[in-house]
């Protein structure tokens, strides 16, 4: 978690329970709250892990789904998990944002891709922890940048 991040966190939040910002305010399904500790990667070091999957960043509109990561910012900072990580404990079959957080609160969530040029492409597409204001969206970008990343906001319009 950023040491001087109070102002940013204020704009990111408040932290919410899964689905609290949506009109699907309800419980998490079985298996979707299991925390996949061995598959979660923290980005709080400001470094892109060497073994992360990367994509050709020449055309952000064609980012492949198999290289997609889910990201969450919560009290433990910015953490990601590869979306195609299998989750045989859930009917969905693959992980979701609450497999990072459990049933606990988070400030924001979305999807991201790592470009080969170290650029990170992010959107706010999380049904559980999505941004609902422009201030929150801008605060997400600021959080990434203050960690040292070069980040580009993607439109939240799926292709």
């Amino acid at each position: 978690m950023l040491s001087d991040s109070n102002a940013v966190l204020e704009r990111l939040g408040p932290a919410v329970l899964p689905f609290e910002r949506s009109n699907f305010n309800r419980e998490v399904l079985p298996g979707e709250d299991v925390i996949f500790l061995d598959y979660i990667i923290s980005l709080e070091s400001g470094q892109i892990p060497a073994d992360c999957l990367r994509c050709d960043s020449s055309d952000p509109s064609l980012l492949p789904s198999d290289l997609k990561y889910l990201w969450v910012i919560d009290q433990n900072g910015l953490r990601i998990i590869h979306e195609m990580t299998p989750n045989s404990l859930a009917a969905r079959g693959c992980v979701c944002h609450t497999n990072i957080t459990g049933k606990r609160k988070a400030f924001q969530g979305g999807e991201l891709w790592f470009g080969k040029d170290d650029t990170i492409y992010v959107n706010n597409q999380s049904g559980r922890f999505k941004a609902i204001t422009i201030v929150q969206q801008q605060a997400v970008l600021e959080y990434f940048r203050r960690l040292g990343f070069s980040v580009i906001q993607l439109p939240n319009r799926p292709s």
Partner: peptide, 23 residues
């Protein structure tokens, strides 16, 4: 709960908020 259609009817979205309207 309800759903929402985008202005161009090309997208179905889950909520009506400031950011969604921007997108």
């Amino acid at each position: 709960f309800t759903f929402f259609l985008s202005a161009d009817k090309a997208y179905l979205v889950s909520s009506d908020d400031e950011l969604t309207q921007l997108d």
